[in-house]
Computed example of a mutant assay.
Amino acid sequence: MIRTTLTGITISLALAGCGTSPVGDPVDNAFGREAGALIDTGNFGNATMNNTQLMTGEKQYVYDLSQRFASEVLTTVNFAFNSAHLDPGAAETLRAQAHWIRQFPEVRFRVYGHTDKVGNASYNKSLGLRRAKTAVNYLVSQGIDRSRLEAMVSYGETQPLVVTEGQERRNRRTVTEVSGFYERHPTVMDGKYAEVVYREYVRSGEPTTGLNGISGSDFGVESGLGGGE
Rank of each mutant, 00 (worst) to 15 (best):
L6G: 07
T7W: 11
L15N: 03
A16D: 09
G19S: 03
V23D: 03
A30N: 02
G36C: 02
A37L: 04
G42W: 13
N43L: 05
N43M: 07
N43Q: 04
T48F: 01
T48I: 01
N51K: 06
L54C: 11
G57C: 00
Y63G: 15
A70E: 09
S71F: 09
L74F: 03
L74T: 02
F81N: 14
N82H: 12
L94W: 01
H99E: 09
H99I: 11
I101N: 02
Q103M: 09
P105A: 09
V107P: 01
F109Y: 07
Y112T: 02
G113E: 07
N120Y: 11
A121P: 01
A121Q: 11
S122I: 13
S122Q: 13
L127H: 00
L129Q: 06
A132W: 08
T134N: 14
N137V: 12
Y138R: 13
Q142F: 06
D145V: 09
R146N: 12
R146Y: 10
A151W: 13
V153M: 15
Y155T: 02
G156N: 10
P160I: 09
L161T: 15
L161W: 11
V162F: 04
R172H: 08
R173S: 02
V175N: 06
V175D: 06
T176P: 08
E177R: 04
V178L: 07
G180F: 02
G180C: 04
R184I: 03
R184L: 07
G191C: 05
Y193D: 03
V196Q: 03
E200W: 06
G210Y: 06
G210E: 00
N212C: 02
S217K: 01
G220L: 02
E229Q: 15
